[in-house]
Structures are given as structure tokens and as C-alpha cells.
Amino acid sequence: MVPPADFRSYYGRPVVKAPVWHHDIAAYLFTGGLAAGSALLAAGGDATGRPALRRAGRVTALGALAASTYFLIHDLGRPARFHHMLRVAKPTSPMSMGTWILSAFGAAAGVSAVAEAAPLLPGRGPLGLARTVLPPLGTAGQYGAAVLAPALATYTAVLLADTATPSWHAAYPELPWVFAGSALASGAGVGLLAAPCAQAGPARRLATLGAALELYGAHRVETTKGLLSEPYTQGRAGRLLRAGRALTAAGVAGAYLGRRSRVISGLSGLSLLTASLCTRFGIFDGGVASAKDPRYTVVPQRARLAARSQASTDVSGEKTEEGPAIAGQ
């Protein structure tokens, strides 16, 4: 139920500060998820003897990781101090945890991608040695990255939710589903783009499961948060999230209907990747919009206070004493 929307404010000014993050961070939500999804694709492909998936997964994971690092550092107010992130490890700071997850993932994914180049090295000399040690290292890195990938894909949901940004915080129970699903779907998209049809079966199934998680989560976020769902359905956020949903559906449908066509599979993969990008930007923009309008801060908090005083009235059978005298109880 959407609570009544009349409320008072200070000249209509926002109560909380909107995030100062630029769209770098929205882009990072996508590239971080893509890195995670690709790493999982690579591990699955390698374990089940599908070299095309392994190769594409490993290389994309490294590329997406490099892009992520760029976006994260570029967004800092003091980029030259990015290494200050490594001074501490703080469980109460999702950004601190994320930095460590990303660093560990980066090392593992980096090795596994570099190992793809081993066959190109000469057979003798020091490079020949690299040629023999790289493949097992790459395999280890690949599985290491795959183990870290779910953390990399879902911590970003905590990153956004652990703020006073009204629509992000309210979405904390389901945001991880959206991001997990979106990461899987984008990984599947890479598989569909890169693998011959004969090897793309798992990517199709992964696309379906990822899409299901993402659509379920997004549906909950857009419909069960009362007034705080509104920013996700309006304006640019609403358009992006609707586009994301349509492209996801198209991507999954295309992956099955066109499973004998390399071209249609590829287009489906592209559709899934674009869908993931739209979803991330939509969630990002919805939160920012909710912080800029004091309605989304004041009205739900007022409703919470009203519910609480209602509850205490119900318990004591009469209005509690301190009611009008003291705010914020």
C-alpha cells in the first residue's frame, strides 16, 4: 500500500544527500557482474570440456575486471589515493570488503586469462618453462576466480543497500537476486556470443536461470516496497528497467529459438548483455531519484512512527504519555 503522500519538508529540499557517485559506478555494477558471470562460465566450460566457453570466459573476465578497476578509480574524488582502500579491512564497509574481493578475484582471473596465451609461447628457454607452468596455474586461477565470483556479483547489492538512499535500502532483501541473476545472464551472453552452437547449451540454460532470478528480484523491488518502489517505475529508471526486462526476455527466447543459428545465438547474447547494462543503470538511477525527493525519506519514516505509536496504543490500551512531547521515539 502506498501511504498518503502529503508531508512537510524544508522548502522541498532533500533530507538525505544523493550519492555523489557518477555513472562510473553504475557501469561498474555491470562490468563487475560480467567479470563474475564470465569467470563462472569459464570454470564450467573447462570442467565439462567446452574449450570455447573456457577461453571466452577467461578473457572476458579479465577485460571486465580491467574496466571495473578503471571505473572504480576514475570515480574517486582523489584517484591517486585509491590504494588507501587497502589500509584496512572492515566488515562494516561493503566497499572495503568489495575491494578485497575484487583484488583477490583480479589476481586469480588475471592468471587464468594470461594462461590462455601459453600455447603461443616457444617450447624452449625461460618462456618454454612458462609454457609448461602456466596452464596448471591458469586452471587454479580459474577455479579460484569462480569461487570468488558469487561474492563479487552480490556484494555490490549490499554496497548500494547499505546507505540511507531510501529506495536502495528498502530493496536490500531482493537486490542481491537482481544482481546475481544479472551477472549470470551477462556471463551467459558471453557464452552465446563466443561459443559454437554445439558448446552453447549450458549458456542457454544459464541465461534462463539468470533471467529468472533477475526478473523475480526486480519484480519484488518494483512492486513490494510501497512508495519506495515508485522511483524504479518512473522516469529514466523506469524506462531502463522496462528495457532491461524486454531485452532479457528477448535474449532468452532467442537463445532457444535460434539455438541452431550462430547469428541468432550471438544476437541473443548481445541482447542479454545489453539487458544487464540497462538493469544496473536503472537500479542506480532509481536510488538516486529517491534521494533527491524528500517525500521518499519523510513519508515512509512518518508511516513507521505512526505504526509504532499505533502498536504501543494497542498494547497499553491508551495513548502513551510522551506522544506529542518528544519526537523521534
Binding site: S9, Y10, V15, T92, A327, G328
Partner: peptide
């Protein structure tokens, strides 16, 4: 709120353990 203050502020990290838990479950689902 007339002064621009939130009527019932709650520190966001109150819910952080629940958030990590949710993220963990979603990660396992992945």
C-alpha cells in the same frame, strides 16, 4: 521534517548483517 531533519532516522548498518546474509544466499543460488 519542517527543519529538514528526518523524522525517524535509522543507521543503515543496523540491517547490514541481514544484507550480507541475503547476498550470501543469492551467491549460493548463483
Amino acid at each position: 521534517e519542517v527543519y529538514g531533519l528526518p523524522p525517524d532516522p535509522v543507521v543503515t548498518t543496523r540491517d547490514l548483517p541481514a544484507m550480507w546474509k541475503r547476498a550470501g544466499v543469492a551467491g549460493l543460488a548463483m
